[in-house]
Write a protein that binds this DNA or RNA. Structure first.
Length: 181
DNA sequence: CAAGAGATCATCT
DNA sequence: GATGATCTCTTGA
């Protein structure tokens, strides 16, 4: 991955992450999948972002340097994986929502942010880890020049006022491994 | 097919 | 004490 890739506009990162390969190593197992769906959470003004509520213990990692994992528990049940973007003290991140499995040893399809974390054995132990480490990292994958990117509203953020209508969800058109169309 | 409910708990007020 | 960046299951048209 390019240096400083995550230190740029969150929406741009979210789109450029599509097609790249998420890799996770746990023990001898390696899990890999092509990222098919992402969402951008664009800083302190974005009412959909946890960071809009200010700096707390949970959101602290978003205020840190780009390229770290932000992992939290939603609805008391599932983990969600984000990657912090933008420069330090600008709290923003990209939610990795779905991927197309390449190499998995579990019978869980990584479709939807909760299932993705289940399938890839991602939990809070990886919070704040660099996304360029030995446990979790990204690879370039094949080029996706000819694949269309669709834009849509983000899921599950009805509370976000005028930000709920922003089309900051991105997914690969015609790919089956997308949570909603 | 769409809409609603329930599971379940860390985080924040 | 309330609330979710989810998912599955049930109900009913």
């Amino acid at each position: 991955m390019e240096k400083n890739f995550f230190n740029q506009n969150t929406r741009k990162v979210a789109q450029q992450l599509l097609g790249r390969v998420l890799c996770r190593k746990k023990g001898k197992q390696i899990y890999q999948g092509i990222i098919t769906e992402t969402e951008a959470y664009c800083g302190p003004n974005d009412l959909a972002s946890h960071a809009s509520k200010g700096r707390t213990k949970r959101t602290e990692v978003m205020f840190g340097p780009p390229g770290r994992c932000y992992i939290y528990l939603v609805y008391g049940m599932y983990y969600c994986l984000n990657i912090v973007t933008g420069k330090k003290n600008h709290p923003a991140a990209v939610l990795i929502r779905s991927c197309q499995p390449l190499k998995t040893y579990k019978k869980i399809m990584p479709i939807g942010p909760g299932k993705l974390c289940q399938a890839f054995c991602i939990d809070k132990k990886l919070n704040q880890e660099k996304i360029t480490g030995s446990k979790i990292w990204l690879e370039l994958g094949d080029k996706l020049k000819f694949t269309q990117i669709k834009k849509a509203t983000r899921i599950g953020i009805d509370y976000a006022g005028k930000y709920k209508n922003k089309k900051w969800r991105y997914y690969l058109q015609d790919n089956k491994f997308v949570s909603r169309r």
